[in-house]
Computed example of a mutant assay.
Amino acid sequence: MNEHDVLAERFEAHRPRLRALAYQTLGSPSEADDAVQEAWLRLSRTDPGSIENLGGWLTTVVARVCLNMLAAHRDEPVGVVLPESVVSDADGSGPEHEALLADSIGPALLVILHTLAPAERLAFVLHDIFAVPFDEIAAVVGRSPAAARQLASRARRRVQDVAPVTGTDLPRQRAITDVFLIAARNGDFDALLEALDQDVVVRSNGTEVVRGAAAVAARAFPFTRIAQVSLPALINGAIGIVTAADGKPVTLVGFTVTGAKITAIDLIDNPRSIAEADLAVSDPAWSRSW
Rank of each mutant, 00 (worst) to 15 (best):
G94W: 12
V87T: 12
A108K: 09
T177M: 09
E208P: 02
D135R: 05
V210Y: 02
D103N: 12
R172L: 11
F180M: 10
A131G: 04
A163V: 01
N205S: 05
I176S: 03
E194Y: 07
S204V: 06
D190G: 03
V210H: 01
F180Y: 11
D199G: 06
A147C: 04
D169Q: 15
A155G: 15
P164C: 06
D135E: 10
S93G: 08
S144T: 15
I105R: 13
I176V: 10
D169N: 14
H127C: 00
A131Q: 09
A139F: 08
D188L: 13
V165D: 08
S153E: 15
F134L: 05
F130H: 05
Q150K: 08
V162L: 12
A90W: 03
A152G: 15
A131P: 02
I176Q: 09
D89S: 08
S153T: 15
E194Q: 11
A102V: 02
L192E: 00
A183Q: 04
V86E: 15
I112S: 04
P83R: 02
A184F: 00
V210F: 01
R156M: 06
D135N: 07
F134R: 00
H114R: 07
V141I: 08
P171C: 05
E120L: 03
R172V: 09
D161I: 02
D91T: 10
N205Q: 07
V140K: 03
N186Q: 14
A119R: 14
I137K: 00
V179L: 12
V200P: 01
V162G: 07
L193I: 10
V111W: 08
S93Y: 05
V111H: 11
S153A: 15
P118K: 14
V165T: 13
D178K: 13
P95L: 09
I137V: 13
L170E: 14
I129G: 01
R143N: 01
R156Y: 05
Q198G: 11
D169S: 15
A99M: 07
E194V: 09
T166V: 07
E194W: 06
A108E: 14
T207Y: 03
